[in-house]
Design a protein around this nucleic acid. Structure first.
Lengths: 112, 112
DNA sequence: CTATGTATATAGATAATCTAGGTATACAGT
DNA sequence: ACTGTATACCTAGATTATCTATATACATAG
């Protein structure tokens, strides 16, 4: 399953952050919930990704102290992040369509 | 674009070989043609993949001498390859649907 | 004799992800 | 007091599909 998802992590994270700022743990839980358990982000994937995205200017992190429990680092999407999201979402859509076409999932009525 | 396609190469190759045996160069050209240039397999990807798939028993290669030009190694899909193809195609379909759902490509009518 | 197309092959680099570990707080159960 | 579970962050090292670049070899066109 790993290579299936390869490269999709970033666009998924960006799509969530486009709605509202979230912290890492929340992102993982939210994606798991929305996909009914299908997407299951590992910490070793998610946190380095968030750091990389921040370094690239796609998101901006900000620590927030919580009364009870560990502090959270909230990430907000930047204008550049939105641009990247739009572009990536379009690319993934094209890719999916191309792939499914080749795989014959187009559901053309069977000939003969 | 590299990580977009990651892992999809095998299922694409298998889907072609499910139709008829083909040789490496032919597979590359055929996929490029069917996708109108979208899929563009590199040699460094395709040949090692074919060797790996043969080692795993998904395909079986056979050299054929051609009157004019270099010999060709034709690959035929095995029963096990067909099983893998079915499973992989289903996985990719699920993945695509899940991804597009999260990305909001579902085209639900805007609320409000 | 050089370039292009056909056809296969491999060595080395790249990079996203996973595994497996770590730190720390809060709370429930024993 | 101790243990486990949930929350919340972090990173080092290994894995592996893919790409770049290079090599060999035959056929044909210029």
């Amino acid at each position: 399953m790993t290579d299936l998802r390869r490269g999709s992590t970033q666009v998924l994270v960006l799509s969530l952050l486009a709605e509202e700022p979230m912290y890492g743990y929340q992102i993982a839980k939210e994606l798991e919930h929305r996909s009914e358990g299908y997407f299951d982000f590992k910490e070793g994937t998610l946190y380095p990704l968030l750091h990389r995205m921040e370094k690239e200017g796609l998101v901006k992190g900000e620590w927030q102290v919580v009364e009870k429990g560990p502090s959270r680092k909230y990430y907000a999407i930047t204008p550049e992040g939105r641009k990247t999201l739009e572009k990536s979402a379009a690319e993934w859509t094209t890719f999916s369509q191309r792939l499914l076409k080749i795989l014959g999932q187009e559901a053309e009525p069977a000939s003969t």
